[in-house]
Write a protein that binds this DNA or RNA. Sequence first.
DNA 1: TAAATTAGTGCACTGAGTGCAATATTTCAA
DNA 2: TTGAAATATTGCACTCAGTGCACTAATTTA
Lengths: 200, 200
Amino acid sequence: MTHGDPSRASGEGLRERKRRETLQRITDAGTRLFIAHGYEATTLDAIAAEAGISRRTFFHYFKSKDEILLAMQAGLGDLLTAALAQETRDQRPIDAVRKALVRISGAYDPGEMLILDRVMRSSEAVLARKQASYVQHEATLFAALRALWPEAERETGLRLVAMLSIGALRLSLEAFNREDGRRPIAALLNEAFDALETEV
Amino acid sequence: MTHGDPSRASGEGLRERKRRETLQRITDAGTRLFIAHGYEATTLDAIAAEAGISRRTFFHYFKSKDEILLAMQAGLGDLLTAALAQETRDQRPIDAVRKALVRISGAYDPGEMLILDRVMRSSEAVLARKQASYVQHEATLFAALRALWPEAERETGLRLVAMLSIGALRLSLEAFNREDGRRPIAALLNEAFDALETEV
DNA sequence: TAAATTAGTGCACTGAGTGCAATATTTCAA
DNA sequence: TTGAAATATTGCACTCAGTGCACTAATTTA
C-alpha cells in the first residue's frame, strides 16, 4: 500500500462512515417528511426514496418506522448518566439529579423540540412509545444513582428519587410544550423541583 | 304486544345485551389465546373465529388488537375517580389519594394481574401503551383532585400529587410483578407512600 | 307491519414488517 | 495486488393489522 488511507487516518473505516451517513440521511428524510405531511401519511417507501435507499434496507437501520423519532429521545439516557457521574456523594441524590438535568437541558434545541412533540402527538402509537421511554429513562437513572450510592439500604429511596426526577422532567417538558416554549426548560425544571420540596 | 318484554324489564334492550355479550366473548377469546400462544402469534383471524364473529366485525368493537388488553386497564381511571369522590377536603390531597388507591386495590385479582402482565411484556408495543396509560391515569387523577380542591393556587401542587401518586402506584405494581405477587398490592402501596414521606 | 337504525359481513386495498436468497461492496490477509 | 471472508444492499414473496365501501341481516320504533 503506497498511499496513506485517509479513512483510517480519521480512525473510522469507510464502512462505518457510510453507515453513519446513511443513518443520518434516513433520520433527516424521515423527520422532514413527517413534518411536511404528518407521521401516518408518510410511508416507508417515501422515506426510503428520499434517503436514497431501498425500502428493505431501511430495516437494517431501524426496527420500525417510529424508531426514527424515538432514536433521538434515546440519547437522553446516556447524557443523563454522564452528567450524573460528575456529581459528588456529599449531597442529596435528588439535588444531584436536579443539577445534572438542568446542566444538560441546554443541549436541546427548543424549536426542534416543539416541532417534534407535535409530530409525535399525531400518532397514538408513537406518543405511547415516547411516554414509555420515560420509564426507560427512569431505569437508566436509577442505575446511575446506584453507581454513586451503592449501599443496599438506599435502594428503595433511589428508586423513588429516579421516579420523582423523571416525573419532574416529564411535567417540565409537558409544560414547555403546553405553553409553546415561552419559558426555557431549565426554569421549568427548577420550578418543578422546588414544588417537589414544598409539596411533599 | 300481549306479553311483557323481559329485556325491557331488566332495563336493557336486546341490542345492548348482545353487544355486551359479544364484547365479552372477544375479550375472553383474546386473553385465552394470548395466554396460550403469546400476543404476537395470535392473529385477529384466530380471535374472531374463537369469538364466533367475522374479522371485520372485530373492528366494530376494538380499534386495534392491543385494545383487548388495554381496555381492562382503562377501568382504573373510573374506579379511582369514584373512590376519590368519597374523600374529604380536611386532609392532605396525597393522603386522600393513598386511601382511595388502597381501597380499590382489593378489587383486582392478583393471579390474573400477574398473567396479564407477562402477556403485555411479550410485546413492546403493548407494553409501551400500558406504560402510556399511566400518563392517562395521571391526567384523570389530576382532574378528580381539582374537583375536590378547585382553588387556582393549588393547581401545580395537585399536578405534582397526581404524578407522585401514579408513580407510587406504578412502582408498587412493578414490585408486585417483580416479586411474583408475594406481597399484596395494598402493602406495597403503603410502603411506597411511606417511603415518599421519608425520602423527599 | 313497514320504515328507519344499527350490527355484521365480504371484498379489495394499503402499508408495516419479515425471511430468504442473490448481488454488490468493503475488509483483511497472503 | 489479489482473492477470500465479511458485511451491506436489494428484490421478491409473504403475513398480518387496519380501513373504506357496499351490501345483507337483525333490531327498534312509529
